[in-house]
């Protein structure tokens, strides 16, 4: 099957695939506040992980440490065989391979949609302008808004902006996509269009880490669900196990509030 987003879809079962992200005893403090406590996680290639948890539980902070938008004080993160250290070279390498989608879209308001998407491929991947713009147009087609290429972000609806943001991250052809509450800032009627794009992306074989409150998406798409609370992983498992048969008290409490 040819993948719509240019991802190589693996057919081997998850357990036999290689690890693409390894997080070992990750610890982070904001001053005295211990935000991440000994977080361990291994992600396989092509795996889709949804991270749930109450607000302030550290789940956003956790995925932001993976592409070095947040620093950490103790532990180890290895992304695509590159160790995340203070070395600027390593950080830039990792950022090239990890796309990120933010809650507030963060499109560049002074550039057209096409420029937004092709900026990084041109200046980081060093592709020719024509190639980068062609890829940008293809991606816009795939997220369903090819006609908006020459508009500015301010002229688009929230849902369209978030789809552009996804296209912008994908244009770098990353191996991993991080989603930080991608639908939380959207009007309810626009949530679906963004989730649909994410679903297609997941089906195409992309490795994804998604922080979200969309339970339907989590149940349907995730290979694994992680419940975060107070800076630590409380419970981790397949969606059906975690939703239907939660083992931990805190998981039960969280799910009873949400569902």
């Amino acid at each position: 099957m040819e993948s719509v987003f240019g991802v190589n879809k693996l057919t081997t079962p998850l357990t036999e695939r290689e690890d693409i992200i390894k997080v070992n005893k990750l610890n982070k403090w904001y001053g005295d506040h211990h935000v991440l406590k000994d977080v361990d996680l291994t992600v396989k290639q092509g795996e889709v992980i949804v991270i749930l948890g109450p607000s302030g539980s550290g789940k956003s902070t956790f995925i932001r440490t993976i592409n070095a938008l947040e620093e950490f004080q103790k532990g180890e993160i290895i992304v695509d065989d590159i160790a995340l250290t203070d070395d600027v070279k390593n950080i830039e390498e990792i950022r090239k391979e990890t796309g990120m989608v933010f809650q507030s879209f963060n499109l560049f308001p002074h550039m057209t949609i096409l420029k937004n998407i092709s900026l990084a491929p041109i200046w980081v991947r060093k592709w020719k302008k024509t190639k980068a713009e062609q890829i940008a147009k293809d991606l816009l087609e795939r997220v369903g808004i090819p006609e908006q290429a020459n508009k500015y972000p301010g002229q688009l609806s929230g849902g369209q902006q978030q789809r552009v943001a996804i296209a912008r991250a994908l244009a770098m052809q990353p191996k991993i996509m991080l989603f930080d509450e991608p639908t939380s800032a959207l009007d309810p009627e626009m949530v679906k269009e963004v989730l649909d794009v994410m679903k297609t992306l997941a089906e195409s074989g992309m490795t994804m880490l998604v922080v979200t409150h969309e339970m339907g998406f989590a149940r349907q798409v995730a290979d694994r669900i992680i419940l975060f609370d107070k800076g630590e992983i409380v419970e981790m498992g397949k969606p059906e196990e975690l939703f239907d048969n939660p083992k931990h008290e805190r998981t039960k409490a969280f799910l009873s509030q949400i569902l």
Binding site: E92, G99, M100, S104, F108, A120, V124, R168
Partner: peptide, 23 residues
Amino acid sequence: IPRGQFEAAQALGLNNVKVMIFV
């Protein structure tokens, strides 16, 4: 300029100089 603009540009792999110049 909101912090999100810096973060979005950095997350795309742009280095500090390019973040400044383009974004």
